[in-house]
């Protein structure tokens, strides 16, 4: 584990969500969510389906607008600017710049099907960061090597397995050198035997001290890499804490039930395997 709960207090948080609220009509998808991440920390968000995990993750890099509260990156408000007694959403150009601090890995990979693995990785560095082509290609090949796909660089996504596609997606996010990596259930679209290869890449990333926020159903993985686990239900953070504490002694009934059911599921999976 890289950072512990004690150090989070002394270090200025890299990311801070304060009373973040998100509504779809009358429905409250996020209800006054508060969260801080220390630099280099790994946070896992768990909870039942529809509890707002994806929504919370997506508000962080402004893929979702928020209806209340604020998000701070290195202590600066992002997504909104303050004018006197009011706040206004930032311009699209500013949002784009702020979003560059975050890398995102999607459940369905969302690789660009018309580009090869290497082109997927180098596209944004070249056309957004303005890197030279040779430089971007060299960096891209190195990243693909790191996720174990050096020899697949010229394959199109349709020619890669799900696990390989997701590893390309991770390399693509890393290529932009973001400060925070966001993962939304990166392994739940994968066949069970392909989950391991993606998790091991993420595990290695966690050890290199990258700030990561991960929505996941893989409790074993969360226990291994997370500094902090957040349990969400119905748009609220119900409990949070270090994984061992949270998994062993959930305080609320809701969390107890959830962890018990997950444990049962995973036990079943193992008995099948």
């Amino acid at each position: 584990m890289t950072t512990t709960a004690q150090t989070t207090q002394s270090i200025r948080p890299i990311l801070e969500l304060v009373d973040v609220t998100k509504k779809y009509g009358d429905f409250c998808a996020l209800d006054r969510v508060n969260f801080t991440a220390a630099p280099g920390s790994v946070t896992c968000i768990v909870g039942p389906s529809g509890s707002g995990k994806s929504t919370m993750l997506r508000t962080m890099n402004m893929l979702e607008t928020i209806d209340g509260g604020a998000i701070y990156f290195h202590g600066e408000m992002i997504g909104h600017t303050v004018h006197g007694q009011h706040r206004y959403p930032v311009s699209d150009a500013t949002a784009r710049k702020q979003r560059l601090n975050f890398g995102m890995v999607f459940q369905n990979f969302n690789l660009f099907p018309n580009y090869t693995a290497l082109e997927n990785v180098t596209l944004a560095p070249i056309s957004v960061r303005g890197k030279s082509k040779p430089e971007a290609l060299a960096a891209g090949e190195e990243l693909l090597g790191k996720v174990g796909l050096a020899e697949k660089k010229n394959n199109y996504p349709s020619e890669l397995s799900g696990g390989q596609q997701q590893r390309v997606a991770i390399a693509r996010a890393l290529a932009m050198e973001p400060e925070i990596l966001l993962f939304d259930e990166p392994t739940s679209a994968l066949d069970p035997e392909l989950v391991g290869e993606v998790l091991s890449v993420m595990q290695r990333l966690a050890r290199t001290g990258r700030t990561m926020v991960i929505v996941t159903h893989e409790m074993g993985f969360a226990q291994d890499v997370a500094d902090e686990v957040i349990f969400m239900d119905a748009g609220r953070i119900i409990e949070q804490g270090p994984p061992r504490e949270l998994f062993q002694n959930p305080k609320t009934d809701r969390a107890k039930k959830f962890f018990a059911s997950v444990a049962r599921e995973q036990a079943e999976e193992h008995s099948h395997a």
Binding site: V195, G196, S200, Q203, R244, F247, Q248, Q266, A267
Partner: peptide, 26 residues
């Protein structure tokens, strides 16, 4: 691509499910 070349078992990814044991003990 033959399926067998795509699995990377050698990485020894994640300890198999400590949660079950934890909860079972509880």
């Amino acid at each position: 691509v033959p399926r067998s070349t795509q699995v990377e078992g050698s990485e020894g990814p994640v300890a198999p499910n400590p949660l079950t044991d934890v909860l079972a003990a509880k």
